[in-house]
Every structure is written in structure tokens, then in C-alpha cells.
Design a protein around this nucleic acid. Sequence first.
DNA 1: TTTAATTACTATATTAAAGTAGAAATTACA
DNA 2: TGTAATTTCTACTTTAATATAGTAATTAAA
Lengths: 131, 131
Amino acid sequence: MIINKTQSYAIRVLELLAQKKDILISAKKISQNLDIPYKYLTRVMTKLSESQLVNSYRGKDGGFMIAKEPSEIKLKDIIDIFSNESPHQCIYGDGSICSQKTKCTLHDKWQNSKESINESFLNTTIQELVK
Amino acid sequence: MIINKTQSYAIRVLELLAQKKDILISAKKISQNLDIPYKYLTRVMTKLSESQLVNSYRGKDGGFMIAKEPSEIKLKDIIDIFSNESPHQCIYGDGSICSQKTKCTLHDKWQNSKESINESFLNTTIQELVK
DNA sequence: TTTAATTACTATATTAAAGTAGAAATTACA
DNA sequence: TGTAATTTCTACTTTAATATAGTAATTAAA
């Protein structure tokens, strides 16, 4: 896949919260609505909250709300939160063999594909998913 | 990553075998040459052999040889051998929610990126990596 | 025909991602 | 002030990918 499961969960959550802008929604409801395992979701939500893409409200009647204009949130912002991979990874691994200096045989081809994806992540906002 | 570790191992193996066309090379040598764990590599090699991208020769002085013209082996041929994912996966998973009929919100964008990658896999042959 | 070097097979171990469980901290409201 | 509903924290479990280990099968050559 292009992105992992956790990342796609997070994108879908923000899509939902964008649809319900200015309304508090609990993790329980998000979980039911999007069919994402509740306990796993709560951890995703905590990270989204730490990253200030959503605001969280604790306690009774608490929940989550999108923290920015949907048009201000790029897919890349979300994806990066749940990403650990070094961005320039090629078939020769982590940069020790393949680097800008000593490119691996696929470096340029890879880079093109990656840039195409990355560009898509950069210029797609949550706004677009909602309408 | 775009591809997983096993897939990149396999690509590098075929790159090497293409460089040593018509020469038998043992798994041990491949392992040393490419710094791929020996035991893991042997299983990758068995699969490449089953898929007839390489010919295997057992017994003393045995080893592996590329089985086709490097120009005839597409990256996609190699990648597909070590791939289990359904090819049209979007953020809504495996096709039950997102399909051609009921597209997910990112379906078209995703498809573009995927096609760009896929095209690259399809029109890049091992030949290109060697020169 | 024996030996050594190899591929092939099968089982197990390690690691990272995904998922689950329980309880602490917080808060609205009766 | 007590209770119930929530987020947050910490630990554990499961699953899939990657890696390791041991041995069987094969084969060239002494």
C-alpha cells in the first residue's frame, strides 16, 4: 500500500470530523461510524490531538473536534504523524548505500514516483475529501 | 516504502545475476555480495526459481543463473512474486467499502499515484539497472 | 562410492504494526 | 459531592514480515 492502516484511519477520522465541524464527537462514535477498533482509535486520537490537528475535550460529554479549517490540513500533515520511515529510502535501504552521492540504480525512478505521491499528499487537503 | 524489503532483495538479486549473465553464482556468494541474510535469501531464491526468473542448479558447484534476457524481466514481474496485497486498495480498505462502484473519497487520486508507480514497474526492466 | 558443497524444505525466533485490556485522570451534571 | 461518561496512560496480545537453524536431497568430483 501507499500508506499504512494507521495512516488511513487518521485520514478518515479527519474526513469525518471535517464533515461535523464544530461538533464534539466521542471516540466511541468515531469508532462506530468508521468501523475502526475503539481502543486502537483512542491512541490514534491522542496523537492527532498532540499534533493539534484535533482538539480534545475530556470528561463527560467530551470528545474531539477538528482544530483547523479543513482546507488548511494537508494529507501529508496527517501521514507524517504516523510515519517513521526515512523519506529517501530506495532499494538499497536506508541511505548508507544509496544516497544523493552514491545513487542506487533505481534512485531516480523511485524519486519520481515518490515525488508524484508526495506532491499529491501535499496538495490534497481534507477539504477536498469532504465535498 | 513503495516496496517491501523482500521485494527489494529480489530486485537486487536479479540485477546482480544480470551482471553475471551465464555464470553460476551460489546463494552464499549472492548473500555476501549483496549483504542479504543467507538463510532468508535462499528462500527468496527458491521462489525466484519456481517463478522461472532464475534457473537453479543443485548439488556441488551448484547455484543460480538468470533465466531470461534482462530486457525481458520487468520489475513488476519480480515484485508480484512477493506481493499479496490486493492491487486496488484505497483508504477504505479492501474493496468492500471502496470499489469501482462506490469509490472512496481518495480513490481517483490514489489511482493516479498507483498507476504512476505501476507504470514505472511495468516499463522498467532489469536491463536498465545493469547499464 | 564417499565426500563436500550446494539447493530445498520445515520449523522456530525475532521484530514491528495492529489490536486489546484495565485503570487513572478529568469533567458535566444530578 | 457522587456518578457516569469520557480522554489518557500503560501494559499486554496477536499477526505478518523478516530472520535464523537444522536437516534432507542433490550432484560434481576425488
